[in-house]
Amino acid sequence: MSQTDRALTTALAQAAATAGRAPSVHNTQPWRWRVLPDGLELRVVRDRQLTATDPEGRLLVLSCGAALHHARVALAAEGWRAGVERIPHADDPDLLARFTGLTQVGADPEAMHLVQCMRIRHTDRRPVSDEPIADSALDEITEAATADGIRLQLLDRGQVLQLATAASQADTVESEDPQLRAELAYWTGRAGDVGLPAAVLPEAPPQTTVPGRDFGRPGTLPVGSGHDQAAGYALLYGDEDEPVDWLRAGEALSAGWLTATRLGVSVVPLSGVVEVPGTRAALRGMLAGVGYPYLVLRMGLADPTHAGPPHTPRLGVDKVVDTSAVRGT
């Protein structure tokens, strides 16, 4: 193996490892990478699908899309440019993406900065501060999230109230379903390298205009007395509702979230309202029926009086990155 080939496989393995910092529904981390001598493959891990909550796999694939974007950025930060084939084989639906045609170019300074943002990005479900987000920041986040054909619609006050009603309805539906409750209980308040530990869950329901998910148990994260009146809400959506669209939506989520992190903006994904068919239809009504909703985002400036919550745990690199095809070469 030449020095260039060795540098490539090292960069691929490092990018796959860095991608493990990506957000995923309930921190399921449903991805598996395979490093090849001349490329990198992303596969979905069906064993970590929320079969009751997400039977179609929309959030499963969206989570993998976020990891895909993380890997793209990590490669660019190391000076590699790659083409990406999404859902390359219809007869192999678990193969979500493949990096091909990698060429060595100069390291991208913006990508290097975003890799730093990956290390500090987290989900803070507590109310945000009373300071509104600057319009320039919202514009920059929107531009980043819509670079690959996915769109982000900022909701006006009336739409936020509609969203609040839909989120409350979705929470009621899910809280009354024993399978959904059991699945949520399995992935929350646990110790280990996947799922949501108690330290990242609020100790009491936060005072928010749009209710967040009821995790069925209190966490240990102090909430405080704030509200989210200065928060903004947005709908991530696209023209189609197929796996490749969910994958791109995850990439858009990652791009927007990392940009928000760079700008000091807190992002909380709200998936409950998308998980229930009836409330997902209500979201589609906000789009006048011309788009398919993938995820709702709450954005705001974190309350400076509170320290951020801890990061969620991550699977070890050996559990998510397969280097057997290049080992010993």
Rank of each mutant, 00 (worst) to 15 (best):
M1V: 08
D5M: 06
R6G: 07
A7M: 06
L12T: 01
R21L: 12
S24F: 04
S24C: 09
S24A: 08
N27K: 05
Q29S: 09
R32Y: 08
W33D: 03
L36F: 07
G39A: 13
G39M: 14
L40C: 05
E41F: 07
E41H: 12
E41I: 02
R43P: 01
R43L: 15
R48K: 14
L50F: 00
V61D: 02
A66T: 02
L68N: 11
H69C: 11
H69Q: 15
H69N: 13
L75A: 02
L75E: 01
E78P: 02
E78S: 15
H89V: 13
A90R: 11
D91Q: 15
P93V: 11
F99N: 02
L102T: 00
G106E: 11
L114G: 00
Q116G: 10
C117S: 12
R126W: 00
R126P: 00
I133Q: 00
L138K: 03
L138S: 05
D139N: 14
E140N: 12
E143H: 12
E143G: 08
A144W: 01
A145I: 08
L152W: 01
Q153N: 10
L154N: 07
L155R: 07
D156A: 12
G158R: 14
Q159W: 00
T165V: 03
A167G: 06
S168P: 10
S168I: 05
A170H: 01
E174D: 13
S175M: 09
E183V: 07
E183W: 07
Y186F: 15
G189Q: 06
L196C: 10
P197V: 11
P197L: 10
A199G: 10
A199C: 10
P205G: 03
P206N: 11
Q207D: 15
T208H: 04
T209S: 14
T209V: 15
P218G: 03
L221W: 00
L221Y: 03
S225Q: 13
S225A: 12
G226P: 05
G226Q: 09
D228P: 04
G232S: 14
L236V: 03
E240V: 13
V244D: 15
D245P: 03
W246G: 05
L258F: 01
T259P: 01
L270K: 11
E275G: 03
P277L: 03
G278W: 06
G285D: 14
A288T: 11
P293A: 12
M299L: 15
G300I: 02
A302M: 07
D303N: 12
G316M: 07
D318W: 06
S324A: 14
S324Y: 03
A325C: 08
G328F: 07
